[in-house]
Design a protein around this nucleic acid. Structure first.
Lengths: 245, 245
DNA sequence: CGCAGCCTTGACCATTATCAACGCTGGTGG
DNA sequence: CCACCAGCGTTGATAATGGTCAAGGCTGCG
């Protein structure tokens, strides 16, 4: 959501030959114009991380020494106010990038939601690589710009949508961001808690819970478990997400 | 706020020799590593636009054929819901970029707030230039990443801050974005209407007006006119912006 | 001078937050 | 193996922030 996003599925398959040994996924596997020699250099520089739920990749305020590429699982990115209010600015999944947007120190925190793996690069290595690999740079610029568009959508959600519209939008958008998980149409997996959903949508847990109950009661969705649900009436949900219901 | 931002002030002065004839400002004047030959090619490709208040540079949904660089005045960038609700995702000033973030069609609209000028490039030209000018690409990537950080701050504002905190944050941040206007410390110029401020902060005009009145009554700011104000107690306003008051 | 457009202020209302109680579920230890 | 406990989720009652509706005031321009 928040940082640059790769499209790892096809890549991982096409180029498995050179995949990362530690996590099985290929770091920086931005599909497209990057040749194997460049990808090899990336692999050589990657450190591989295995994260338990709640473990931090990045802490706001720490010196920004690394750049990350999530290779499996899911990650929350957030900022805090001094009194503890939290805004989750994005959920990241396999293929997403992290830590490109910062200057001297990180301006946000990032933690694993579920068990996750990531590749880590020293920022100096990253800068050199960028300089020497125009195709990589172009891909990152393109992705950064798409992330800006996503950020605009989230601003619309946070600034102008009702709680029902926010939750509906969230349920519709979430599957798009998790490219690895086999996406059965209409099936939504929620690796995050209600609190995390609330902090992402600018609501409280209670409001999220009430809206989900309302959607369930009206037959628009079906809750299979706390973390799995089916969209029963996608057209209705879409209308709700856009404020047409 | 929203798109890539140049630092035109120093540039404009240092390189006036080759400044744009139509608007007096130099398009794509990203200070730093771009040499004169490249800047010359940029100049040659620029179309110069003069905009009256309310005139559109970009309409959401139109085919994305151009990329823009604001050279004077100010511009609002926004998205609409079908029922007319508007979220302004950013205000742009001299030096800001616009239209890089899109695919086939624009996903937001952009209109002049005050009389403004901009340079316009055909997207195909822009792509070629990018490809041939690594320094330009690097500068744009860097700026895109900084814009992502700014977007995260706005999400925090929209999702978690109170009306008082939103207005305080806005008054403190605004001067940073308008690099051309001579910024007397503590003096804030508001080229936009109350409605535009409200649509940027996710509030209504009435709430914005009430908060400004409250800040005025408590002596934190002084309203010189509808569009000019002074911050009398910057420390207090900063505390308010971070939720510490 | 008058009007249009924007801004301010006030009264009231609604959505969502807060506070509180209860329920479910999964893990652990007796 | 069962029971308890902790953590998360749901539901309900109440409160408050900000929205809505309405009236009136400035300001700048014709």
């Amino acid at each position: 959501m928040l940082e640059l996003k790769a499209l790892p599925v096809g890549c991982a398959d096409r180029r498995r030959s050179n995949a990362c040994a530690g996590c099985g996924a290929r770091p920086f596997s931005v599909c497209g114009n990057i040749d194997d020699a460049d990808l090899g250099r990336l692999d050589a520089l990657a450190e591989h991380l295995v994260l338990q739920p709640g473990e931090a990749l990045i802490r706001e305020g720490d010196p920004a020494r690394h750049v990350f590429n999530v290779t499996s699982g899911s990650v929350r990115v957030y900022k805090l106010l001094s009194d503890g209010r939290r805004q989750i600015t994005g959920f990241l999944f396999a293929g997403d990038f992290l830590g490109l947007a910062t200057g001297e120190t990180y301006v946000f925190s990032a933690e694993a939601i579920e068990p996750a793996t990531a590749c880590r690069f020293r920022k100096s290595d990253y800068r050199t690589l960028i300089r020497e690999t125009p195709a990589l740079e172009a891909a990152l610029l393109d992705r950064a710009n798409h992330e800006l568009a996503a950020a605009q959508n989230q601003m619309m959600l946070l600034g102008r949508k009702t709680s029902l519209e926010r939750v509906a939008t969230f349920l519709l958008d979430l599957p798009d961001h998790d490219p690895v998980r086999a996406t059965v149409a209409g099936h939504v997996h929620l690796p995050m808690t209600r609190l995390e959903i609330a902090d992402y949508l600018g609501l409280t847990i209670e409001t999220v819970s009430r809206v989900l109950t309302r959607l369930k009661t009206s037959g628009v969705i079906r809750l299979l478990s706390l973390t799995e649900l089916r969209i029963e009436q996608p057209a209705v949900l879409k209308a709700m997400a856009e404020g047409e219901a």
